[in-house]
Design a protein around this nucleic acid. Sequence first.
DNA 1: TATGGGGCTTCCTCTTCCTGGAAGGTCAAG
DNA 2: CTTGACCTTCCAGGAAGAGGAAGCCCCATA
Lengths: 137, 137
Amino acid sequence: MHIGEAAQQSGVTAKTIRYYESVGLLAEAPRRPNGYRDYSAKDVETLRFVNRARGLGFSVHQVGELLELYRDRQRASADVKAMAQARIEDINRKVEELEAMRSTLLHLASSCHGDSRPDCPILADLAAPLRSGSASR
Amino acid sequence: MHIGEAAQQSGVTAKTIRYYESVGLLAEAPRRPNGYRDYSAKDVETLRFVNRARGLGFSVHQVGELLELYRDRQRASADVKAMAQARIEDINRKVEELEAMRSTLLHLASSCHGDSRPDCPILADLAAPLRSGSASR
DNA sequence: TATGGGGCTTCCTCTTCCTGGAAGGTCAAG
DNA sequence: CTTGACCTTCCAGGAAGAGGAAGCCCCATA
């Protein structure tokens, strides 16, 4: 099938499929006599795999590793599980970071009356010189 | 003072200070006769402001807006509060997204025995054709 | 047969936010 | 005089594509 159909069936845009190929995540697709890339149902399956893994936040590089494990009939499931768990830890760290930001922002926003007066503790805090209890991270 | 000292006092690297200047976030610094940039205590204060705002996750562009508000003695505090709240909503969306990923990953990881056997539901799920209840997002 | 509309190809630029490095000027100390 | 530490500019890269231009290819229709 053409790249457009593979895109539609996998949920990965044609543009992105070419990009994945260009960076080596996907093998070069075989070409029809007219130069068009030709995809099989198996390729669509791979694309879907990639799309799901990306959706879970794995980097393109990590997806490459997952694909390798996927194709390796001898792999140990522990390897895959380790990747999933590492990803979970990443997420945990990111969530914590975001929650720290949010908590600071909530605190600042609540202390700002938010009307037409120029007086604003949010700006005052951002501008404050080094000081404990401020909004730095 | 030289850029290095400004960097040290503000927590923004010299490299990054030059970058901020190059993209217009900061005004061009005045130069000494030898061509070196010259910074004042006021500039350091601005750099610290920028650094804190970036630490709260505001984009460079948004920090520019915050700086404008900061310098505008006539600003309405409501404008600043609105930016803080918009940022909070951004964070909320991101956290939700991350938590959805995490929940899927936790589910997958727990269903994988994680030993030396090749059998792995994580890969199986990623590879699965279109199906409800899978790990797509 | 000419034409039109998609779809395909490659290549280049833009985005965000820096970081690293190369080549070269400056300054203070030993 | 020579280090070595700073400073300068400029260029490249990285993550993960999106957007768009220029140019084929294929099919259908008037």
